[in-house]
Computed example of a mutant assay.
Amino acid sequence: MRARAVFGVLRLAAAAACVIALVHRLFWGLSSRTIAGENFFAYLTVQSNCALVVVLVIGGALAFLRATDPRWFSVCLALVLTWTITAGLAFALIVWQAGIRGIRVDVPWSDQLLHFWLPACTALAWALTPGHREVPWWVVPASLAFPLTWGAVTLWRGPLVGWYPYYFLDPRQVSGPPEFLLTSAVALAIFALVATAIVLISRTRRGRTDAA
Rank of each mutant, 00 (worst) to 15 (best):
T68R: 03
R101T: 08
A195I: 04
D106V: 07
L52M: 08
R208L: 14
Y43S: 03
P119Q: 11
L118S: 03
P177N: 00
T68I: 05
R101P: 02
A211M: 11
A16M: 09
P70S: 15
R25V: 12
S32Q: 14
N49P: 08
R206F: 06
G37K: 04
Q173H: 12
V135N: 00
P108V: 01
L155E: 13
S32M: 10
F73P: 03
R172L: 05
R203I: 15
L160F: 06
F168R: 06
W138I: 12
L62A: 06
A212S: 15
T45Y: 02
A195F: 02
W109P: 09
V161A: 07
A51H: 05
E38I: 08
S143I: 02
S32L: 11
A120I: 13
T129D: 12
L22Y: 09
A185K: 01
L181E: 12
A67H: 10
I35P: 03
W117H: 09
V23P: 00
S31A: 13
W96E: 09
L62T: 02
L89D: 08
C18S: 14
R157Q: 09
Q173E: 13
R203F: 13
L26Y: 14
L93F: 14
H24T: 13
L124I: 15
P130S: 14
L56F: 10
Q112A: 11
T34D: 01
L193K: 00
L114Y: 00
H24C: 08
A125D: 09
T209P: 00
A211L: 13
D106M: 09
A152D: 05
V57K: 01
L22P: 02
Y164M: 08
D170S: 15
S31L: 12
P178K: 11
L114S: 01
G88M: 06
A120P: 06
L181M: 13
L148Y: 11
H24Y: 10
G102I: 07
R66G: 03
N49Y: 00
I103Y: 15
A21D: 05
L89K: 02
W96G: 06
P159T: 13
G176N: 04
W137C: 00
S48E: 12
W150Y: 15
D106A: 10
R172T: 07
R208T: 11
W83V: 03
I58E: 02
M1S: 04
M1R: 04
R25S: 15
L155D: 11
N39Q: 14
L89E: 07
G176R: 02
G99Q: 15
L155I: 09
L81G: 01
C18R: 04
L193G: 01
Y164G: 04
W138C: 07
W156H: 10
V194Q: 00
Y166H: 15
G29K: 03
G162F: 05
E134F: 08
A78M: 05
R157Y: 14
L44T: 15
L128C: 12
A145S: 09
G29F: 05
H24R: 11
L193I: 08
P177I: 01
